[in-house]
Deep mutational scan, measured.
Amino acid sequence: MSIQHFRVALIPFFAAFCLPVFAHPETLVKVKDAEDQLGARVGYIELDLNSGKILESFRPEERFPMMSTFKVLLCGAVLSRVDAGQEQLGRRIHYSQNDLVKYSPVTEKHLTDGMTVRELCSAAITMSDNTAANLLLTTIGGPKELTAFLHNMGDHVTRLDRWEPELNEAIPNDERDTTMPAAMATTLRKLLTGELLTLASRQQLIDWMEADKVAGPLLRSALPAGWFIADKSGASERGSRGIIAALGPDGKPSRIVVIYTTGSQATMDERNRQIAEIGASLIKHW
């Protein structure tokens, strides 16, 4: 058993032996400061991975655009179909130039040979490839079927209504393609630790998130040596930015963190910096 498999397999085991986890309101002070700095709403939640207890939250039940963070949920739905014998990670999917949409750094290189379902999930999560996400959405029946999958998990909040890139429109008060921090954190925890997916599929999902290559300026920039993080970021119109993550010290995840912001006029660099500073406060007061 690899170190990674050891880590995921023991998450339920550690729940019975973990020390009490204490919240630190200092992080919420930073979240509120980020709102002031960005001139935008910020949603935040910090969840204990083992118990599911909410440690801190700010606007946990307000809607925010999901942006590309939905791609983790999408690959969770794909893995659920794999577990049920309805899909194979090794199945190759062929597509054409007409299928390519904006920001497809991986799929645009494989027009001649296509990509496997496994490769598409990797591209969608680690590189946020939009065509990969659309191709995967097609395999499960489209955005409405992803919403149905989430409903069956008990998440009646999170919804996907459109495809890439239209889902990134982020119109104020538009509930399409949105979630709430509390709903996203709970759903992510179920995917990573619950019985919905097999152990192998849970491991695969967290491996893809751990290999994320496009979230460096966010929480990863504040991470001390030896800490673990598996994450997925997102960005969209109207100053929207977000990240969902499982992270913790000693090389294993122990908390879920979800951060969303929307409605800012700030630059992408400034949005990144504010999220990184929230992460730094979280780690300092861990």
Rank of each mutant, 00 (worst) to 15 (best):
M1I: 08
I3C: 12
Q4S: 13
H5P: 09
H5G: 09
F6A: 09
F6N: 12
L10W: 09
L10P: 10
I11W: 15
I11M: 14
C18R: 00
L19R: 09
L19Y: 15
E35D: 04
D36G: 15
L38T: 08
L38C: 06
A40W: 06
A40K: 02
Y44C: 02
L47H: 00
D48E: 10
N50G: 15
K53I: 12
K53H: 12
I54N: 05
E56R: 06
S57N: 07
S57D: 07
R59S: 14
M66G: 00
S68I: 03
S68H: 00
T69A: 05
G76S: 10
L79A: 00
L79S: 02
S80N: 13
V82N: 04
D83C: 01
D83I: 00
Q88R: 14
G90M: 11
R91G: 03
R91I: 02
R92W: 08
R92Q: 09
I93V: 13
I93K: 01
H94D: 09
H94V: 14
H94P: 08
Y95N: 00
S96T: 15
S96D: 13
Q97G: 14
Y103N: 07
P105Q: 06
E108R: 15
T112R: 12
D113E: 13
M115K: 02
R118Y: 14
R118G: 14
L120V: 03
A124T: 11
I125R: 00
M127T: 10
D129L: 00
N130T: 00
L135H: 03
L135D: 02
L135R: 02
L135Y: 02
L135E: 04
T138A: 15
I140S: 01
K144Q: 14
E145S: 13
T147A: 04
F149Q: 06
L150C: 15
G154V: 03
D155E: 00
T158I: 01
T158A: 02
R162K: 04
W163G: 05
E164S: 03
P165R: 03
E166L: 09
E166K: 07
A170Q: 11
I171V: 13
P172H: 09
P172I: 09
D174T: 05
E175Q: 12
T179R: 01
M180G: 09
A182T: 10
A182C: 12
M184A: 05
T186H: 14
T187E: 00
L188K: 00
L188S: 05
R189V: 07
L191H: 06
L192V: 08
L196H: 15
L197P: 01
L199V: 13
A200M: 10
S201T: 06
L205I: 08
I206S: 15
W208L: 03
M209S: 00
E210R: 13
K213V: 11
G216W: 08
G216E: 10
L218C: 04
L218T: 03
R220H: 02
S221Q: 11
S221V: 10
A222N: 12
A222I: 13
G226E: 07
W227T: 00
I229T: 01
D231Y: 02
D231A: 06
G234V: 00
E237T: 08
G239Q: 04
G239V: 03
S240D: 11
S240R: 02
G242C: 05
I243Q: 02
I244L: 06
L247V: 10
L247M: 11
D250Q: 14
D250E: 13
G251Q: 08
G251Y: 08
G251D: 08
S254E: 15
V257A: 04
I259F: 05
I259D: 00
T262S: 12
T262E: 10
G263A: 12
S264K: 07
T267Y: 05
M268I: 12
M268D: 07
R271T: 12
R271W: 03
Q274S: 12
I275M: 05
L282E: 02
I283A: 04
H285L: 07
